[in-house]
Design a protein around this nucleic acid. Sequence first.
DNA 1: GGTAAAACTTAGACATGCCTAACTTTTACC
DNA 2: GGTAAAAGTTAGGCATGTCTAAGTTTTACC
Lengths: 236, 236
Amino acid sequence: MPNFYHLKDLSSNFEDYLKTIGDLEAEKQQIRSKEIARIMKVKPSSVTNALQVLREQDLITYRPYGPIALTHKGKQIWLILHQKYKAVKEFLSDTLEIDHHMAEVLAHKIEHAVSSEVSERMFLLNEFLNTHSSCGAGIREKLHDYYMKETKESEKTIDREPTPFLLSFLKAGEKGTIHKLKGDAATREKLMNMGMNRGQDVLVERIAPLGDPMEISVRGYSLSLRKSEAGLVIMK
Amino acid sequence: MPNFYHLKDLSSNFEDYLKTIGDLEAEKQQIRSKEIARIMKVKPSSVTNALQVLREQDLITYRPYGPIALTHKGKQIWLILHQKYKAVKEFLSDTLEIDHHMAEVLAHKIEHAVSSEVSERMFLLNEFLNTHSSCGAGIREKLHDYYMKETKESEKTIDREPTPFLLSFLKAGEKGTIHKLKGDAATREKLMNMGMNRGQDVLVERIAPLGDPMEISVRGYSLSLRKSEAGLVIMK
DNA sequence: GGTAAAACTTAGACATGCCTAACTTTTACC
DNA sequence: GGTAAAAGTTAGGCATGTCTAAGTTTTACC
Ligand SMILES: [Mn+2]
Ligand SMILES: [Mn+2]
Ligand SMILES: [Mn+2]
Ligand SMILES: [Mn+2]
């Protein structure tokens, strides 16, 4: 039980630092601060700060310029976080049929908001749907058909009157279609050279902690947009 | 329209302020700052600050000491947030069978992490399970039985205390006890044939320079395990 | 309508966690 | 081994969103 207490003391950002360190410990022989910074998309000085905080909580061992390793307590918490992430991700992609890559991005956010009981139930629900068939036909097929039927119907209604909105207003996981570009000619040209043309579908993959920049996916490519640029793109 | 371009993403805290204001607007004739503070468990000065931020985003109308009301845009966003919360809450309590009150608490956290697509799918999954029966018996009954069966088993094994961790995290010289094997049936079978059964003590003798494979000792025998295999063994 | 209480706002402090810039240590290579 | 590059740290700044304490406006009531 004491471990659950300390787990709750970790902010979601530091849960991610711990998880990243555990992931690296499992696959590399040495953990580089720079690698943590790359994966978490922060500057090295932020990693140093995180390492100091994690050490204060007895989750890692570490000294300046020295090697980084999870303590036993750190390993225990890592496993809990890992299992949460895995259960949520697989639930999103297998049962809710969210696009695989999007499921990973969203699971990274949701993992910090669910209790162990919820992730355990998601795991069991996923397993249940895998192993139980419904009157001969697989239940997943029926569920898939149900999603598709409802999606088509909601598309019918959406087509009627799409309310315009700005790309900068979308959150991670949401998508839209480019309607128009604003701004001066040079900036519009730059955006179009990135593949952002009228009618293109855009998916927001991730938004940096302070809201700038945002990572989007257009024509299968990932782009990084400043908020000011995203504010020039009108969507429908 | 001019302020359209100044819209920024709402932080999850401000999403909650907006949602609380919308909820109050629906049920009270006048919105009291003090009531928002009570519901959100913050001090009145924090509410004032939030009101100023929401007004800057054109989500509410408001002046010092004056009445508070959602703008049209505020109402649109409130509706999106409301639907997300409702879908998540009902999914948690109806489909994952999380305690009603706990579901409300968790939905309040999860709502900020899910995309509209995810909450829509949660809604549809919930609806699907309500309306589709599986071979006579309701599917929810089967799902419930599945949850209960697994819960009982995990209660049996949990006893109390030591928190699990992965064998792959042990370093040379460290030991632990096998708690559970993960992975597909064939791999689990292979590991069990090596003598890796529940309750067995394991000692890590040596880890290869690149971290893979690791040499362990079980039942007095030395075994060589790949890192990927060690990652399937949950220890205590 | 005067006055006290309640409601609300403002100012300033503080914690978090990010950043940049300058500095220190380690490493890589000749 | 000497030196430059890379890696990592420290210091200081900034945005967010909370709080306390003090000030202002509104309300309630005589
Ligand atoms: Mn992927
Ligand atoms: Mn995460
Ligand atoms: Mn309740
Ligand atoms: Mn909430």
